[in-house]
Design a protein around this nucleic acid. Sequence first.
DNA 1: CGGGTCTGAC
Length: 629
Amino acid sequence: MLCGLLPMCAPNPHLLQLLQSLNLSITTKSLLLTQQSHAQTYRLGLAHHSILATKLISAYSLCKLPSHSLLIFHSANPKNAFLCNALINAYVDNRRYPDALTLFSQMGTQYHVSPDHYTMSALLKLAGELRDLVMGKYVHSWIAKTGFGSDSILMNSLMSMYCKCGSGRGFGDVRKVFDEMPQRTLSSWNVLISAYVVYGGSGFSGDVREIVERMRIEGVGLDGYTVSILLPLCPAPSDGRRWDFGREIHCYVLRRNVGLGTTDVHVCCCLIDMYSRAKNAVAAMNVFDGMSSRNVVAWTCLIAGCVRNGLSEKALMLFQRMQVVDGIESNAVSLISVLPACSSLCSLMDGKQIHAFAIRKEFSDEVSLKNALIDMYAKCGSLDCAWKVFDEDQHVRDSITWSSMIAAYGLHGDGDEAIYLFDKMLKLGIEPDNITIVGVLSACCRSGFLIEGINIYNSLAMDFGISPTPEICSCVVDLLGRSGQLDKALEFIDAMPFDPGANVWGALLDASIIHGNSEMQDLAHKFLTHLEPENPSNYISLSNVLASSGKWDAVIDIRSTMKDRGMNKLPGCSWISINSEMHSFYVADKNHPFSPQIYEVLDNLFLIIKESFPCFDNFDEGSLLGSCG
DNA sequence: CGGGTCTGAC
């Protein structure tokens, strides 16, 4: 008997080795390692081993293969709570919620296993995902009955559930659990702060600051999670230039080696993103350069940051380096992030290359990527390609896809197609949002469709339940203004439910310039320079108008005001790439070798425009050139 | 030497 017992008690070297290899599979989420370990269990005759099976269920779940987890579950007998809980979690993590529920209900009846507090933790996660407050409260009462209220992790799960299921009064429940917990961990504080972020509106508000201050008083330090929750709140809009919480948190990270300083990819990504939003591209770059290892998210953070700050060439260069230097493949999100760089450089070739990569990687079912491609093609001048992307797979479309294509037609001056598509979208029962409306209204503006535009605007509340946004209102002002109804545009501005922003006055200024209304010009200019005293474009546009009508005294006034305030307007520039050669043009530029021929075509185009659009009658060539500045 | 909470790019 002794001989038979000994091998059971002594640690089995094969078992230990397999456990280590499985732990590695789990930390690296490697399918290959998981499969190798799985094969080993058969070779060593350990396929029924409960501990190995539990680990394998988790490992396959992390590789997004919950069906494989189920096979493992079936191969292990008898069932116990470890196996059941691991499989329920595998289902929840892979969004197979009905399967998770079924297994829970079968635990007692079919497998004769009693649910324990780990099961309840899994159920809380499930309730949170399903926003099922009834299920969540069921677990809460189970905890109260069984006396597991001192299990901090379970209580953290409970808070997290209330946060997700809350709908309005959720925060009160989160707070109550937190206040009544006998023992808190740092994670408890982290859940509390994320709940404040969910319910407390935007920014580094007073409530959040209060919690962080309380953590300081109670001697609870921040960890990588805390920092990742707080950084997206910085810089808060209310911070202004008074205080820089983002930088303060960065200093804390460096001082206290949070997440081991610059090795925590999560923390670094949040820092890069924070600095990018604070318009500090240099600081973002420094964080990136200091990272010991980078993944696709880190690269994408930096690329998106460059795009956000107008560094499009840099964004494209980084995109290339990510793949060539670090050997990291881009995913759908990184492609979506880099596409606007192609748009702002009008680089159709770069955009097409990214599109080709997406096709090779079979990302074609990612609707957000499709939307980004439509937008890119439209902005790079290829309406045809935009349409092809829109048209190809009719199942992969959401309301943004429609909005993007409508905006694309608007951008290219085809108001008819834009309105046709808008109607088609409505007929298919797809709900427009305020972005869709801006797209279709600006299409109306560009094509001079006053009646159609106003009709859409008037039907917003009734037909779509959309209330006007500042952007929508500025479209209406543009619409009325361009068609010469300047007084109505002004009336509309007075009746708007919020203070008109710079884009509203800008639209009115453009319209009054087109229609030669100097009174309205002055009014719009006055408000515009009041709202944006530092924007040189606002002065230039008026100065150009005054110059074209020979009012040189007024021009000198404006120019000297600009000089006093140290304003410099970079001259506007257009460019086009023909046979890989870049041709660029400034206003009234005559430096191009083919300048005479180019102006001849321009003159002819101008005549055609004048004949086709009578509203351009008040427009002479001088003011056309002038307003291009 | 098994299963559970909180974090990132569009």
